[in-house]
Structure formats: C-alpha cells, structure tokens
Amino acid sequence: MNRSNAILTLIVLALPLALIGALASGPVTIDLGSALASGWRGEGSDAVILWQLRMPRALLAMVVGAALGMGGAAMQGMLRNPLAEPALLGVSSGAALAAILLLYYGLAWQAGWLLPLLAIGGAFAAVACVWLLAGRGASASRLVLAGVAINAFLSALMALALNYAPSMFAMQEIVFWLLGSLANRGWDQLLLAFPFVAVGALLLFSGRNYLRALSLGEASAVSLGYGGRRYPLAILLGIAAAVGAAVAVAGTIGFIGLVVPHLVRPLVRQDPGRLLWASALAGALLLLLADILVLNFIGAQELRIGAVTAFIGAPFFFWLIVSARRAGTL
C-alpha cells in the first residue's frame, strides 16, 4: 500500500474516532458508556444528552462536511478551476437566501420538506447565474469575478431580507447565515438534510466519468461521448442538492469546499472521480474536528463554526500555496 492510500485509510479510521470525540465533548460531563448502553430511548439525562443532542449534532456535522467537500470537488472539476467553491460562487448564499425568505416570511416552523427543496432551488439558480455571467469555459479570474459579484449581491439581499423580517432577532441572525452553526440542531434537521445530500452525492458520483473526461479538456470530453447539457446539468443539480440542503440547516459554512479538495487531490493522484468521495470523507472529518474544537475550547459563547473551519483550513491552504510555489507548479 502506498503512502497516499495509507493517508486515505487513516482518514477513514479517524472518522469514527472523531465521532467518539464529538460525542464526548460538551459543556456537561456525561458517562458515555452507560449512556450508550441505555439505548436511544433512554430516559436518563445522560442518555438524552447523548442520543438527542450530541449524536444528531455530530452526524449533522459529518453530513454537512461531506456535502461541502464533495460539492467543492465537483465544482472544481466541472469548472476546471482551482478556485471554484460552493460558497465563493454563490451556491451557499443562494440557498441561504431562499431559506431565509421561506423561514422568516413564509411557513416558518411548518416548512418541512419545502425548506431543503427551496434552498436547493436557490443554490441552483445562483450557480446558474454565475455560470451564465462568466460564460462557458471561463478563465479563473472571470469566474471568480462573476462569483464574487453574485455572492456579494446575494449576501446583501440576505441582509436586506433579515432587516425587514418581522422577528426581533432577525438582524443578529445574519451572523448565523453567513458563518453557519450547528448549535441546537436535532434529528429533525438531520433527517431533513440527509436525503437530499444523499441524492446529490449519487448524482455527483454518477457524473464522475464525465468529470474525468472533462479533465482532458472540453473538446476531448465531447469526443469521448460526453457532449450535450445533460452531464453538466446533472453535476450542477448534484452540487445544488448536496450544498443547498446542508446550508438550509447549518448556514453557509465556508472554506471546506475550497480547501478540502486541494488537500486530498494529491492523495487520489489528481483523479477527479475519486476526488469526490475522498473530499466527502475529508470534509466530514474536518467539520467534525472543527465542531469538537468549538465544543471544547469555545463553549457556550459559541464562535461560529464557519470561523473555526477557516482557522483550521487557512493554514493548510497557506502551506499548500508555499509548497506549490517551491515546486514551481503555481
């Protein structure tokens, strides 16, 4: 087994360990063993804390992290652009804006399935706008420019929508929608997001060969039989479904979609197909670790998780840039 595979195996093995770490983290000390043994219907406070509060939160962190990592990998592959990222290109803010409009002006608590569906619609519309604005096969700078423009516009609309929302807390909640949070989430949010993330992941996974062909260039991809709009649409829908559903329940957590694919790309030998699931795994791990950090060191005065992912992710990115400069590949 070579070094890359060993690291990937390590990530896979680290996930359950991180899960245990997350379950053991929190403001209250609980007896993890007996709480686990008392089962999910346990009545004791330890069991309730473990099964109703910590478990859904940790699983949600994994699902959201996986969705963001995979979404980022697919986006970078499809747009053949190392700077493509769901948050940077307006996918997250599109989803967040749709969720804000529904939650604060619409059906509020009864939203149910409509919430992720609408968020996915918002995400899809945003990425489509960026794509149309930048044009096909856009250069990195043009794409980022279009993304920044759409993203800034959508963020401003989010602030505007919250400013006029009837709730007294709406303004302070801009922070949540811009930085994301996993606090006070339960099984209902997890169950709401998971099916859509899973469908999105399946869509992306089914498009893996298209992404591989695309890495040879658009013309080569067409000559390999990947012409037409069917493939890019499926990928876009996959990204929108995974990221949109994640944003609807956890806000826009940045950096994971950008950094994670870069971190794991050497491990899968630049294969955009394998990069998808490797990024999902690494994204899940990174967000879970960020959440453990939030729970253990920051406590009840919660620093938003989006800020923590940037704290963890940015140094890795610095290192990546420096090492790439040394190797002369950037």
Binding site: L53, L103, W187
Partner: peptide, 12 residues
C-alpha cells in the same frame, strides 16, 4: 415569528 434564537426552545 421564526427566529433561530428560538431553536433551543423548540428542540425535541
């Protein structure tokens, strides 16, 4: 009205 501030009090 909806606010994330009330998420805790509506938790299962």
């Amino acid at each position: 009205d909806f606010a994330l501030a009330h998420l805790a009090t509506r938790h299962p």
